[in-house]
Amino acid sequence: MLVAVAEKDLIRDTNLEYCDALRAAGKEVQVLINRGMSHSFYLNKFAVDMDPATGERAQELIDE
């Protein structure tokens, strides 16, 4: 399972705990930390189109 976690997300720690729980349940987990991003950054089309960093992180997420 791929879990994308935004570095500045207020629920980042909860997302990482979820990954730990999946691993404890015997699941294979890949974590993608999106540097410098906040919650659901990839849904903000304006930011994805206009901000190079947001666009790069969104593309990294798509590529994974």
Rank of each mutant, 00 (worst) to 15 (best):
L22C: 09
L43I: 12
S38T: 13
I11Y: 14
R23F: 05
K45C: 05
V48T: 02
I33N: 02
I33K: 01
S40E: 06
D49T: 06
G26C: 00
A25T: 00
V31P: 07
V5L: 05
A6W: 01
E28A: 11
V29P: 04
D20W: 03
N15H: 12
R12C: 13
Y42A: 07
V31M: 04
I11E: 10
E28R: 07
Q59L: 10
G55H: 01
Y18Q: 12
N15C: 13
A25G: 11
E7C: 05
L22A: 11
S38E: 12
A4L: 11
T14W: 12
I62D: 00
T54L: 02
V31I: 14
R12H: 10
G26D: 02
Q30H: 13
Y18N: 12
A53Q: 11
K27Q: 14
K8H: 15
Q59G: 02
C19H: 13
A24S: 10
E60H: 04
N44S: 08
E64V: 10
E17F: 08
Q30R: 15
Y18I: 09
I62T: 00
Y42D: 08
E60C: 01
D51W: 05
M50Q: 09
A53C: 07
S38H: 11
E56P: 00
D63I: 01
K8W: 15
K8I: 13
L2G: 03
L10D: 12
Q59V: 04
V5P: 07
L43D: 15
D13M: 07
A53M: 14
N44W: 07
Y18A: 13
H39Q: 03
M37S: 03
L61Y: 01
L16Y: 04
V3K: 01
K27V: 15
E17M: 15
N44F: 11
K45F: 06
D20Y: 07
L61P: 00
V5A: 14
Y42W: 10
I33Q: 01
